[in-house]
Each structure stands twice: as structure tokens, then as C-alpha cells.
């Protein structure tokens, strides 16, 4: 084994400052190892650039980035409360508008702050047509408080408030179909994205920000701790979420689907479940477990059918080659 050539002493702080990308989220934040949300937030800001103001709902992202006096944010950032991020962002946007400033406004929230407690404010923001990009970092449960189920938690998933036991197979209710609800607001741009597909994610951010009016991004962001997978598997798990059909990658304009990332090789939901302890009980040898897993599979199948996700022919791996590397990193340009 030849080790990579030794670069000698390098001033890493200088090198860090010279990175050819905008780093909106700085290192030294306290996210868990392999945190999908930390990665997602940095990618969103990389695409958005420095001329932004971010309003952030209460949650992991807020906590692990801003233990006063430290902050990991390199952008203007404000946290108010859990349920009001869309309204705070609305206010910022209204102020910028009347002041004639062109800075973009982003609202960041987890699934709790989006699907559940922050939903009303979000709906209001969309209805009032504020020029804000709302990004929901969807890790499918209340992770900050210790893995409680949310409206986004998928059917059958274990959480501390939807435990699996003798009479229950995890969460008893379906994941809220938020995208359809958002779509019903008729906003100009809404999309889903996944950290496993960073270029797709970033192009969606750019599209959202170049669209006047409210836009919405549902960004699937695995939580190694809450989902029960190894910290190195964050991307692999989320890739399976997409490739199984459980989390379709879509783009909508005015409620109409205008883009879908096709799946060339559909992976069984079982493969996705096998990597995560939150679905471990569904892999047991019992009729209830079997039914639970089959139910999830049926939901994935229905997504594939509903959105026409099957790729045909010798096409690229996905609709835009978004997960294909290029020598020299040009795919990230």
C-alpha cells in the first residue's frame, strides 16, 4: 500500500479560506457523525450563495450550529421559535422588499417544524406569496428531543413514541403526504431532494431561488442516530430511499409534476429497511412484521406507479446523471 504523497506542512486555515466554494455552514458544528442534515444545509447554502438571510426553526440544526458564543453559520441567520419560521421569513422578506434589497430569504426547518407545528405558518407564507425558499430537512421524526414520531415518520418506523412491541409494529399512521398539500397551494416551484443526490439537490435550490415567489424543498436527510444506521451509511441509506421508490425525487410547478428522477434499477424496500434499526422489527419472522414490510413495499410501488418513476432502456442511472461522478469534479460545477 503506497500512502498518498505527503503534502508537507500546509496552513489548513488558509487552505480552508481558499476553498473554491461558498461554505455557508462552517466546520466545528456539533452535529452527530454522518449527520445528513448538516450535509444538506451546507449543500443548500453552497447553491444559494452568501447573499441570503436564513430563518431557522428550532431543532437539531439550530442547536448544533449555534451554542453561543459560537456559530457555524457564515450567512445572516436568525432563530426565533419552533413553529414560526415561515412567518419570521415572511417578515424578513417583507422588510427586504420594502427596503428594495435583493437578498434571498430561506427558511430552514425540520419535519416537525414543517409537517406539524410549523405547518400553519408555512401554509400562510405560501398563500401570501412571499418570495422565500422554505427548506424542510426531513429526517422523519423529532430527533432533537430524542426520536419521537412526527407527521413525517413513515409507517412502521420505530420511534420512542411509536415503539415496536407485542401489539404494535412501530408507527401506525402513514407519512403525511406533504408534497401534495404544498402542491395544492399552487406555488411556482416545489421539489423533493435527497442528500444522496447532491448535484440534483443543488440545482433544485438554484431553480427555486431563481423562481419568483414562494418555493418549497423537501430534503430527505438521514439521521444515523434516529434511524439506527452506521454513520458512514448516510448516503447509501438515502440512495436506497430514492431507489426503492419510498422517497421519490420530484419537481412541481403550480402543483403539476414537471420533473422526476427516474429509477433505473428499483431496489426492494427490504434493502432499505435492513440498513436501519428503526425498521428492524419489520424483518422479524412473524405475520405482523411481514405485513408491515409488505405495506411499506406497497407504498413504494404506489409511488413508482403514481409518479411514473421507472426508467426504461439503457438510460443514465437517473434522469439527469445527478449521481454520476466525473473525473476532476466537474459534476459539481
Amino acid at each position: 500500500m503506497a500512502s498518498a504523497s505527503d503534502p508537507g506542512p500546509v496552513d489548513l486555515a488558509e487552505l480552508r479560506a481558499a476553498q473554491p466554494r461558498f461554505s455557508g455552514l462552517e466546520s466545528g458544528h456539533g452535529a452527530c457523525q454522518g449527520c445528513g442534515q448538516a450535509l444538506a444545509a451546507r449543500l443548500v447554502l453552497e447553491a444559494a450563495g452568501p447573499d441570503v438571510i436564513v430563518a431557522n426553526a428550532t431543532g437539531c440544526l439550530e442547536i448544533f450550529t449555534t451554542p453561543w458564543p459560537l456559530s457555524a453559520w457564515n450567512v445572516a441567520w436568525i432563530h426565533s421559535l419552533f413553529e414560526n419560521v415561515a412567518a419570521v421569513a415572511s417578515g424578513i422578506e417583507a422588510a427586504l422588499k420594502i427596503q428594495g434589497r435583493n437578498t434571498k430569504v430561506l427558511a430552514f426547518a425540520g419535519d416537525g417544524g414543517t409537517f406539524d407545528i410549523g405547518f400553519q405558518a408555512l401554509s400562510g407564507m405560501l398563500e401570501r406569496n412571499h418570495d422565500v425558499l422554505f427548506v424542510c430537512f426531513d429526517n422523519e421524526a423529532y430527533m432533537n428531543t430524542g426520536i419521537q414520531r412526527s407527521g413525517s415518520t413513515p409507517l412502521g418506523a420505530w420511534t420512542t413514541t411509536s415503539p415496536a412491541g407485542k401489539t404494535r409494529q412501530g408507527k401506525r399512521h402513514l407519512k403525511k403526504d406533504l408534497l401534495t398539500i404544498i402542491a395544492a397551494h399552487g406555488i411556482p416551484y416545489a421539489a423533493t431532494a435527497s442528500v444522496a443526490y447532491p448535484s440534483d439537490l443543488r440545482s433544485k435550490v438554484r431553480r427555486a431561488l431563481s423562481t419568483e415567489g414562494p418555493s418549497f424543498l423537501l430534503l430527505h436527510s438521514p439521521c444515523p442516530l434516529g434511524w439506527g444506521h452506521d454513520s458512514s451509511l448516510t448516503i447509501a441509506v438515502d440512495r436506497l430511499a430514492v431507489e426503492s421508490g419510498l422517497f421519490p425525487l420530484l419537481e412541481l410547478a403550480r402543483g403539476q409534476v414537471i420533473g422526476r428522477m427516474a429509477i433505473r434499477t428499483v431496489r426492494p424496500v427490504r434493502e432499505y429497511a435492513e440498513l436501519q434499526s428503526r425498521f428492524g422489527h419489520l424483518l422479524a419472522d412473524s405475520p405482523e412484521a411481514h405485513e408491515g414490510l409488505e405495506h411499506l413495499q406497497a407504498i413504494a410501488d404506489a409511488n413508482i406507479e403514481r409518479y411514473g418513476l421507472l426508467a426504461s432502456g439503457p438510460e443514465p442511472r437517473d434522469s439527469e446523471g445527478a449521481d454520476t461522478v466525473r473525473r476532476g469534479g466537474t459534476r459539481w460545477a
Binding site: 503534502p7 500546509v10 454522518g34 450535509l39 458512514s232
Partner: peptide, 30 residues
């Protein structure tokens, strides 16, 4: 996720394309 990989392109002709910044790398293995 931790911004602990630094790209060296255009920075003093280093012989490697990337460096780990072990001050921040949490070792997630991703």
C-alpha cells in the same frame, strides 16, 4: 458533513488533490 475535506486545487501546487482537516473530521466514515 463536517467540511473536513479540503480541496487543494489552485493552492500552492500541493501534490494531492484533497487533504483531511483532522481538527474537524469526526471520523464518520462517509
Amino acid at each position: 458533513p463536517d467540511g473536513a475535506v479540503l480541496k487543494t486545487a489552485g493552492f500552492g501546487n500541493l501534490p494531492v488533490p484533497y487533504l483531511f482537516d483532522y481538527e474537524y473530521c469526526k471520523g464518520c466514515g462517509l
